[in-house]
Design a protein around this nucleic acid. Sequence first.
DNA 1: ACCATAATAGAAACCGTTTTCTGATCATGT
DNA 2: ACATGATCAGAAAACGGTTTCTATTATGGT
Lengths: 345, 345
Amino acid sequence: MSSRQSIRDVAKAAGVSITTVSRVMNTVDYPVSAELRERVIEAARQLNYSPNRSAQSLRKNAVDVIGLIVRDIDYSYFGQIARGVTESALDQGCMAFVCNTGRKLEKEYAYHELLWQHRVKGIVIAGGGVADARYAEIVTRQTKRMQAAGLKVVALAPQGAEMPCLGYDHQALGRRMTEYLLGIGHQDIGFLAGPSSVVTSQRHVCGYRSAIEEAGGVFRESLVACGAFSEEGGDKTCRQLLDGSIPFTALCAGNDDIAIGAIHALRERGLRVPEDVSIVGVGNTPTSRYTRPQLTTFDTFRYQTGVRAVQYVLSEIPAAEWSENQIAAACPTPQLIERNSVAAR
Amino acid sequence: MSSRQSIRDVAKAAGVSITTVSRVMNTVDYPVSAELRERVIEAARQLNYSPNRSAQSLRKNAVDVIGLIVRDIDYSYFGQIARGVTESALDQGCMAFVCNTGRKLEKEYAYHELLWQHRVKGIVIAGGGVADARYAEIVTRQTKRMQAAGLKVVALAPQGAEMPCLGYDHQALGRRMTEYLLGIGHQDIGFLAGPSSVVTSQRHVCGYRSAIEEAGGVFRESLVACGAFSEEGGDKTCRQLLDGSIPFTALCAGNDDIAIGAIHALRERGLRVPEDVSIVGVGNTPTSRYTRPQLTTFDTFRYQTGVRAVQYVLSEIPAAEWSENQIAAACPTPQLIERNSVAAR
DNA sequence: ACCATAATAGAAACCGTTTTCTGATCATGT
DNA sequence: ACATGATCAGAAAACGGTTTCTATTATGGT
């Protein structure tokens, strides 16, 4: 009565073979007569039977699980991705392991191995890809191994990594942010980026730089500061810029959290946003609508990206066919949301 | 070369039996001679062997996985719990299924069944427990069944549900918030709660009410409004109160997101925080330090709670011995963080 | 009446491990 | 030299399902 019922128990209770039980549980109509079907279902219900996934997976050589690797699940950026991933996985009957690395390489390796051992169907990597040579090498090797075994890996990152990627162009976004500010009259623009070791940050700054230079300005190292992708990071990097000798009238932030931290820092120094300094963020987090001032930001559709990533991972599309077209179709271009943290000059 | 190597392949390569391979992989020293051990390890390395978890689980009748049920993983409240849960699970070699319900009962049932089929070691329920009679009944039944099978279930909720619980007393917190505001001279205090169907909200209001009444005030239905646990919810409920006929000088918010939304609403109506209206939140989210004004709030240590929940789930402590003492030890009392959203009257 | 065929149910093999049980080898004490 | 026990390795039985293959019965056409 207490412990777990197996398919044998059901078979015995229904007076049939386990083959029949299996067929009743798995196929909708074909190979069993209606009467037996009824008897089996009733027996299973009575015994509260539910199949053992480990056994199923072992025999079918297929596990209905995917892995999601994130840097910090408690950041809204990753939270939104995780929601997209878990929801759309569930739609297809899949569970998702959430793997939080906290930017620790050892953890990421450990998770890779664990996911591999679990024979997951696929892995969505969000916020891995630290620009560590050792890391890149190991992950690339791992990924190759996985793909060879039919496991789908997709990085929620701009193209370039040696695996299927799903991400908008961060460099283009850095450029757009800057051009937007230039376009409304700002000349002295700073960039508050994420960690310098993260490719996203590097590309942001890259795009920022090219926009500045193409507009005939000069790129100043000291108008760029790198820090954590958090309010605290934004607060610190902004103070850095304020303590520098170069004045600025506008700021790009690597994400909305950074922007919020920066606004805080500016306020503490007696500067008004957007009257004294304009600021534009990335992410369009729920909070960004409700800050003071409300944040002008670029929506990057993280939820959607999570959904799409799972669609790829659980599809039959082989990695090789994951072309640029599909990426473009799967990943909408960031969209400017104009609110009140930016003023024309 | 391509596909997955099994223990048999390793055995063949090393020229030993699969028994020996298994022993080498699993036991640290005992039953195998040093020479064979070396040979096996080398063979496994060469073949890139890693054990199949499904097979292990089937044989050992134990799965190194736990489930985490959350309402909205992209809310910092649940994100922090999830980080605590996943990190501390990994410390013990466990993976965690993250199950996002979005307040949908069907999803929660589906996840319960799935977790049960996967034979997970335990389940941490955060933000389930919707006050739906049908739900309560089903979940209670489910939980009983699970516990009978040795599966550990813990709800991150105040005591009272018919399962081991791990949570501070929400009613006491509602009371403390109110008393704090009363203590510094406020008389007309409103409460912006979460959804009325969520027990947490009900208890908050309960505590709020008793504090008001014990102070000799009268509880006014129309100074309480229920909405989503989000900025948007706070914005709406706050407007509701502002549109009411009863004036107020202070507000309690069910969480920090609500508080942020409320501040936004107040500002839009030309009211200043805290000069015109004081507001106190719950959660001490990262953002709360950087809003304007910085939020006075109660830290509820969600990360810690997640960690402790996993400690219980993966421990050998039977559900029956999960006493009130342990809960008290495991779950710190919320701590007031005084910042700038509250002013004395 | 009889044979071919379809429909249905069961027996047994298999998935990749762990673990029990058995067997061989070897050192040791008499 | 021989029994005794310790040490080490392998054979085989599980774990709980799915699936292939076989056997039985029912059906239908001549």
